[in-house]
Design a protein around this nucleic acid. Sequence first.
DNA 1: TCATTTAGATGATTCTTGTCATCTAAATAA
DNA 2: TTATTTAGATGACAAGAATCATCTAAATGA
Lengths: 205, 205
Amino acid sequence: MIIIQIVNHPKTEIDMARATALEKSRSHDRIVHQASLLFRENGIEATGLSEIMTAAGLTHGGFYRHFKSKHALVAAALTHAITAAVSDMAEAETAADKRAALGRYVALYLSPEHVQNRAQGCPLAAMQSELAHQPPELQKPLEDGVAHVLTVLAAAIGGSAPSPKAQALLAHLMGAVSLARLSPPNVETETFLQAARKTAAEIIA
Amino acid sequence: MIIIQIVNHPKTEIDMARATALEKSRSHDRIVHQASLLFRENGIEATGLSEIMTAAGLTHGGFYRHFKSKHALVAAALTHAITAAVSDMAEAETAADKRAALGRYVALYLSPEHVQNRAQGCPLAAMQSELAHQPPELQKPLEDGVAHVLTVLAAAIGGSAPSPKAQALLAHLMGAVSLARLSPPNVETETFLQAARKTAAEIIA
DNA sequence: TCATTTAGATGATTCTTGTCATCTAAATAA
DNA sequence: TTATTTAGATGACAAGAATCATCTAAATGA
């Protein structure tokens, strides 16, 4: 009741719009977030819209209030995931001891946890081959995202893009996690990741 | 007419069976080969059975004379592609100068041609993320294939599996080609591949 | 109070899959 | 000749997808 009274109180135009707009914005964010998890976990094509909407607590029909197509959602989810990944790296870029921070990031990337946690891990490693088959309108967000990651890595290493070292490092990180995911989880995994960390350190040096 | 006469001539049982069996075997091989190309080029899920059968010069309905399901074809196509890739490497394993032969293989893998030629290139690099989502019955052929590749690489380097060097090398190769394919083709590609070749050489050394 | 807007739900559509029963044409065997 | 086998073709089917028109319930504004 109190809520209703409050709602009925006069508000500024911005406030009035904000109430519903906020709801929609929250739904929007939930859809994007769940999509980014499911795409990484099960693949883009293998994930249906209804699965995503259900995960977001909605039904499939409401989807087109938020996106004009599945492709548009893929773009949003990809950008979302890359942005999150870059902000993980941002620490390495701004930290006092860049090298130490970068080392911590590399150790996190080349950890067994990351190998197992595909849904919350690096979107490039998780969706690599599928990303190459996306339609042209997705290529630009993708290429921009890759370029962004490379810029941040280059800065953390101590140079500026285009940096062959940053490229070699990213390639090595992605390849190592991908290969680890193609092999059965066993005791060798850790020694393999150790070898990958060693190589990564040599690339940075 | 002559042909008919020849056909009507008595043959041994083996010969008689061989004529049709050979036809079927050839169709079978064409299906597997075209599938392995299309899966790498456009993705496994994105490639329909009718597309594959048309590419093999047949119609979609005949498919189930050769395979019990699409999954069975995926397994056959994957094994086919990995076997072909390994035989490319075999030279490096048996050559007099193993290191030089391995160097040639690495140069070929990290070439612009391989980056562009996804359909005929390394199946692991081409289908990476999709392979991880395949059903359990495909995991064993896949893991065996990866293990086989690693064994051959380890032998070429001069050790035996499990070899952290071979693992790090394969990871770097796969990652470099994948990353190159995620970026727009431009002049930087060659300098990036150059950096990747340098790192590969350091891993082997 | 009543009219308008809109986020989300329902349900239908259209398309594409993988799958399979059935038909054909040719080759083999009797 | 006639019967049998079978690789491949035809066509249908069910399941699942993306998409979208329409309905609903609630909130806004007059």
